[in-house]
Design a protein around this nucleic acid. Structure first.
Lengths: 226, 226
DNA sequence: TGCAGTAAGATGTTTTTCGTATATATTGGA
DNA sequence: TCCAATATATACGAAAAACATCTTACTGCA
């Protein structure tokens, strides 16, 4: 019986542990995810989530933060652990357990994907994903589900918005992620009644119509309601 | 940069990976969790969740299933991954990442804790926990929260019930876990309107009052609603 | 320069649905 | 016949959904 009391961990083979980060952003009216093109066996030339090995002296959150920062250049993104995938056959090289995270940031905060990087990185619409390496398709599906459901009972959408924004922007994000249109008046009532969003004294400008009041979130951390 | 393409995993030190299982059951009108008394450094004589190392050829789910079966003897329990804890300092011996699960079973299915076992195992009320080893208090809190919230939008309670049961038993479980009383008539309306529970043609018997119709769940798998 | 048209912002009312609160009759055993 | 828990119905108020209109600033054209 393997117990923590009797087991000498050093005697046994250990799995490798990675983090993979599912990075969501809204670009061109679509929910997009960042993928990296692989350039070696296995899944050569297939697309994969950014990720890498967990170092011995860092927490899982820190590892995820480090991996996604390297790729998208955003420091202050919203990061949340999603699920841990540990099928023994999920990586053909060796036993790799991966702790999947998902991250959110407004596209305005993202550094452009750099062409001179060794690895090819690209944003893909969630509705038009390429062939994916490993079990990354499952990870993306699970992350998308989590995001969708969490929109309904938390202020998590702040992760996809800049500091201030018109309410119509918030609504657009909900509509994009839910994949359906929402009544403008009821949406406004709902989001304001949560108390998590308040108006600023600024207005949008430069548009060919009536300027909108800009709003901001009271707290830039996840709060659940209902 | 550690990338999957360039990193040779065998060259680097790897963390140990364990699963810990938070096993819930209803006993004596309380929500109870199974704990094991440790008998070695670290946290000698403190209580801990059952758990152990993940073997190279088993999935995380299988590891969790194996660990909890060893302790409580239940084969058909409900098992769900909870969260992965990976703080570098969470285990003073070495770097140990643990994938926490929680499990549910009706107390009728549990084998009695065996006195002749080497390790002391015991059920504790969630409201009266002893000093816990490692970060297991945090794990229990997180699992309890998950259980509470999932009761509200899924049929997960089936994991704590035998095959057939009167509706009053279901209500009791909700009341125990929520820690408050619920109106009998409204509860009945709510749970029947989910469509996930149907009546059988049997009745409870041997009680000093009117027998209750016995119900069963349509599916013994998690379904979410609302 | 001013005026009509346009596109989106802001707000209010009605209807329906859902959760909560409450009352009473039923059943089988003690 | 009393008890203890089952079983069912109805009323009320809050929240969600459906739906219409007016407001504002910019645009383009005379």
């Amino acid at each position: 019986m393997d117990t923590k009391e009797t087991y000498d961990a050093s005697k046994f083979e250990k799995p490798s542990v990675t983090v993979d980060v599912l990075f969501f952003t809204i670009k061109e009216g679509m929910l997009q995810v960042l993928l990296i093109k692989r350039a070696a066996w296995p899944y050569d030339s297939k697309w994969a989530l950014p990720g890498g090995f967990v170092r011995m002296n860092e927490s899982l959150d820190e590892a995820a933060q480090r991996e996604i920062c390297e790729e998208c250049g955003v420091k202050n993104l919203y990061l949340e652990q999603l699920y841990t995938f540990g099928d023994p056959k999920r990586d053909p090289r060796t036993r790799v357990i991966t702790v999947a995270y998902y991250a959110l940031a407004p596209s305005t905060e993202i550094k452009e994907v750099q062409e001179e990087e060794v690895r090819e990185a690209k944003y893909f619409s969630i509705n038009d994903l390429p062939k994916l390496a490993f079990d990354h398709k499952v990870i993306i599906e699970k992350g998308f589900e989590r995001l969708k459901s969490k929109l309904g009972y938390s202020n998590i959408v702040f992760g996809l918005l800049p500091k201030t924004f018109p309410l119509s922007e918030v609504q657009k994000i909900y509509e994009i992620i839910y994949g359906r249109s929402i009544d403008k008046r009821n949406f406004r009532k709902w989001i304001l009644s949560s108390g998590l969003v308040v108006s600023t004294d600024k207005k949008s400008a430069g548009l060919a119509h009536r300027p909108a009041l800009l709003y901001r979130f009271v707290k830039n951390e996840v709060v659940t309601f209902k």
